[in-house]
């Protein structure tokens, strides 16, 4: 029972940041709840393997991100998403935006409507402060992939936010003055 009490303490301390991270990556609350459970079961099963070479929260976060990315890559998730040429599904966008509360939160909505991979990269880099190298490792890709996805995410965010605010719909940065 001692172990379970200790596990509960760890859960109480870390569940909020871990759940927030998962929610930001997968958006849907029901899926995020399930992934949160999976992540903590995995954490407690392998907690003795944790070596104090990095922060404990960092180690916990890597497990949570792996779970979320596995879900995003799974046929079950992809089966519910019709990917367009740019990786965005209008059906998926609507579902994602509908999951955002409150609905008038422009940034929340713009973030939720990003393609899943771009959203994950922008969140992991800009909020969780992961480096491009760390993100690349999580995705099994190169740092160029991470940098390109981040730039792409910001381009989408700007377009979406300008649309929401009624501003100019297009203000591309040309490489020509």
């Amino acid at each position: 029972m001692g172990d379970l009490d200790a596990h509960e303490c760890i859960y109480r301390a870390l569940s909020k940041p871990v759940y927030t991270l998962i929610r930001r990556l997968v958006i849907r609350p029901a899926v995020a709840e399930e992934l949160l459970q999976d992540a903590f079961v995995e954490i407690f099963c392998s907690v003795r393997n944790y070596r104090a070479s990095g922060s404990f929260l960092g180690w916990v976060r890597s497990i949570a991100v792996s779970k979320a990315l596995m879900y995003l890559r799974s046929p079950w998730h992809r089966g519910t998403t019709w990917l367009g040429a740019d990786g965005i599904s209008s059906l998926h966008q609507e579902a994602a935006a509908a999951a955002v509360e409150p609905m008038d939160a422009d940034l929340e909505r713009a973030l939720a409507m990003l393609p899943a991979v771009s959203r994950a990269v922008v969140w992991l880099h800009d909020v969780e402060e992961l480096t491009h190298a760390e993100i690349a490792r999580l995705f099994g890709r190169s740092t160029s992939f991470s940098k390109a996805q981040l730039a792409r995410a910001h381009r989408h965010l700007r377009e979406r936010l300008e649309l929401e605010s009624g501003g100019p719909t297009c203000m591309p940065i040309s490489r020509n003055c």
């Binding site: 379970l4 596990h7 509960e8 859960y11 109480r12 569940s15 909020k16 940041p17 759940y19 927030t20 929610r23 930001r24 609350p29 995020a32 709840e33 949160l36 459970q37 903590f40 079961v41 407690f44 940034l107 929340e108 973030l111 922008v122 969140w123 800009d126 909020v127 910001h154 965010l157």
Partner: peptide
Amino acid sequence: RLKHELHQLPSFEPQEHAWPLIRERLE
């Protein structure tokens, strides 16, 4: 500014029943 605003987005609280379910799975 956008990066700062992303940091300011609210956190989410997991449902109260999440821990009992995790505990049950561990047991």
